[in-house]
């Protein structure tokens, strides 16, 4: 499904070239649950951004379902970005001015989903994450775990094939983290491909593949 070939990303400073990612070779199949691990600054987020089409500034070949990303036109790329990827952030990144309901609705609006369909999707998600009563609250009125649940609901509202999660539990305590990871596991069972970046070995246990990174390179891969 996702095939990365010799991906390099670097910054040229005056005297030397600093690599953020170097010679990344990675293939991810549909239905995989992949964990990227490694210390801060190792390039996990950058790799997620490249996979999620948020960062186009790199060298190398990236094919998604057999199609080369670099060869695509801007519009095709943004259509692909919209339809196939969902994002979850460490800091939740909900829109403060919107309610829970409206936050979940936003990606659907950008996807031109009809009103009736939107209502049923959101109702289903609120129900699934037990947040029906909280739908009119604003993010600041929720706990961190609840905010991240809204983040997850928002990310999967558009039914993406791939879910990208950057330190999804970094700001949560362990019970909340566990809840989120169980949701991930369930989504993965339903067929969603999940790629997460994390520091936590425990979180990795929920996935199938563990990729350890070091200094912008893939250091080793472990199957779980």
């Amino acid at each position: 499904m996702i095939h990365l070939q010799n991906i390099n990303k670097y910054i040229d400073s005056r005297f030397q070239r600093v690599f953020i990612l170097k010679e990344i070779e990675l293939t991810i199949e549909q239905g995989d649950f992949v964990t990227l691990m490694g210390p801060s600054g190792v390039g996990k987020s950058t790799l997620l951004n490249i996979i999620g089409l948020l960062d186009e500034d790199y060298e190398g070949e990236y094919t998604f379902e057999g199609k080369s990303i670099k060869a695509m036109k801007d519009r095709q790329r943004s259509a692909l970005h919209k339809s196939e990827f969902g994002y979850i952030f460490q800091a939740y990144h909900l829109i403060d001015e919107l309610t829970v309901y409206e936050n979940i609705e936003t990606p659907l609006l950008y996807r031109n989903v009809s009103s009736a369909e939107r209502k049923s999707i959101i109702a289903e998600l609120l129900d699934r994450f037990n947040m029906v009563a909280k739908k009119d609250l604003f993010p600041e009125q929720l706990s961190g775990g609840q905010q991240q649940l809204v983040g997850v609901a928002r990310a999967i509202a558009g039914k993406p094939k791939v879910l990208l999660a950057d330190e999804p539990t970094g700001n949560l305590h362990s019970a909340q983290a566990k809840e989120i990871m169980e949701v991930f596991q369930e989504l993965n069972r339903e067929g969603t491909t999940i790629i997460q970046a994390t520091h936590s070995r425990e979180n990795a246990d929920y996935g199938h593949r563990l990729i350890e990174m070091m200094d912008g390179k893939i250091y080793q891969e472990v199957s779980i």
């Binding site: 948020l54 994002y87 990144h93 909900l94 990606p107 950008y110």
Partner: peptide, 16 residues
Amino acid sequence: FKEVGIRKTLGGSRSQ
């Protein structure tokens, strides 16, 4: 700034 980042990630185009 943050809102712009989120909206772009969620699929909002520049013209939107």
